Computed example of a mutant assay.
Amino acid sequence: MKIWYPLFIIMVSALGFYSFNSESNSSLIRQDDVVTTFAIEHLVNEIYYFPSNKPGVSETEFQPLERFDLIFVGYDLNAKHVVENTLDLARSIPGVYTHMLAYIGKDADGFAYAVEMNSDKNKSFSIGVNGIEVGGRLYVYCLGSDYGSKECPQDNYIYGIESYDYMWAKRLKPELRIQLKHSEKQLIKTIKEDLLNAHPFQLQFDLSLETTVNKKIPIVDDGRQNGSDCTTYFISLFEEIASVCLDDIRMNAKAWEAYYLNDPIGQQAIIPKEYNPFNSENIYIMEMLKHSGYFAVDNQPRKTNCTDRREVHGITTPDLVFNSPSLVDIDPVGL
């Protein structure tokens, strides 16, 4: 007993030293490590005070974000500063909010990070067997420090959220959040793998040379199998890894068509000439549907890993997710 007791003390001390140094090493990570090696597993999981504002409100408020809270952003389409290319993109996505990110943690300097799916700067695309393939991938994005008091040391992002007119965050409701936390390590591990592998961007509908013949525009919902857009990445990630599913977040082909045919903003939506497989001109989606005979086709229902084993089909959008009953508000705090 006298021999083993000192040995036990030494072992416990060694484990404590290792644990302490592991935490210290984690806290040493800085922006360069995050954006070059994607070492997101070392980000500190702590509250980030996010500068936000609602549509039509200029006053900035500060929301206390926790890991995997979702950030929604959008443009005021009547604002003079919104350039035409931005309008093209914003009009083609139904709803007030047209892009979505997820907060994942802070580095040693207190800078916060999110991950997002986005298209690339050059708007590259190709037309293959599977239709249009748009250049883009999963990015890790530096949001800045608490309350927006400091900008990130490196600001080399293609699209900055500061270019949006409004941004607001929401959180999974408590029971879903608890369920998500059980898979937190696996979620971070999967996101890192997707960053390292440049998980590709994928549109939620298929336009191909075959479309010009049969006039069909199939809706695409295959999880993360062949790529994702800004919404489907997180929705599918939560479904596949954590068995967490959100309610009322998809629109079917009929609702998708109705947006472009009947909504005043949707009627202005175009397929930019850079992505047009038919010719080298901008084309109004409304004209394709109303006068040229094209029509959307629902995808086959897809089985999920959700707790209730539900089947899903249709297109997800940031605005539908924002308004889902599966999310709750994050009350802002004062300075």
Rank of each mutant, 00 (worst) to 15 (best):
M1F: 08
I3F: 10
W4D: 12
Y5K: 14
P6L: 06
P6D: 02
L7K: 14
F8L: 14
F8E: 00
M11N: 14
V12G: 05
S13C: 15
S13R: 08
A14E: 04
A14C: 15
G16W: 11
F17S: 07
F17L: 12
S19A: 14
N25F: 11
S26A: 15
I29K: 06
D32E: 14
V34G: 01
V34I: 15
T37N: 14
A39G: 13
V44A: 11
I47N: 03
I47H: 07
I47R: 05
Y49A: 07
S52E: 00
P55G: 04
P55D: 09
V57E: 11
S58P: 00
E59A: 08
E59P: 00
Q63E: 00
P64G: 07
R67P: 03
F68W: 12
F68P: 05
D69R: 09
G74V: 00
K80R: 14
K80Y: 12
K80W: 02
V82Q: 12
E84N: 13
D88I: 05
R91C: 08
I104W: 02
I104F: 02
G105S: 07
K106I: 07
D107K: 02
D109V: 08
A112G: 05
S119H: 01
S124E: 13
F125S: 10
S126W: 13
N130S: 07
I132H: 03
G135P: 04
G135L: 10
R137P: 01
Y141H: 13
C142S: 10
G144V: 02
S149H: 09
S149I: 14
S149Y: 11
Q154R: 10
D155Q: 15
N156C: 10
I158Q: 07
Y159R: 10
S163I: 04
Y164W: 03
Y166W: 09
A169N: 01
R171H: 00
P174A: 05
R177S: 00
Q179Y: 07
K181F: 03
K181W: 12
H182W: 03
S183G: 09
Q186D: 12
I188M: 09
I191C: 05
L196V: 10
N197Q: 11
P200D: 01
L203H: 08
L207Y: 03
S208M: 03
T212K: 15
I219T: 05
I219C: 08
R224H: 02
N226H: 15
N226Y: 13
S228T: 06
S228H: 07
I235L: 15
I235D: 00
L237I: 13
L237D: 05
F238W: 02
F238V: 03
E239N: 08
E239H: 01
E240S: 15
D248L: 06
I249A: 06
W256A: 09
Y259C: 03
L261P: 02
L261I: 11
L261S: 02
Q267Y: 09
Q267E: 12
Q268N: 13
K273F: 08
K273Y: 12
N276M: 00
P277L: 04
N279I: 09
E281Q: 01
I285P: 04
I285E: 03
E287S: 14
L289F: 04
L289V: 06
K290T: 11
N299A: 11
Q300V: 14
R302I: 12
R302W: 12
K303P: 06
G314E: 01
T316L: 04
T317H: 09
L320Q: 03
S324M: 09
S324G: 14
S326H: 05
S326C: 09
D329M: 03
D331A: 08
V333S: 00
G334N: 13
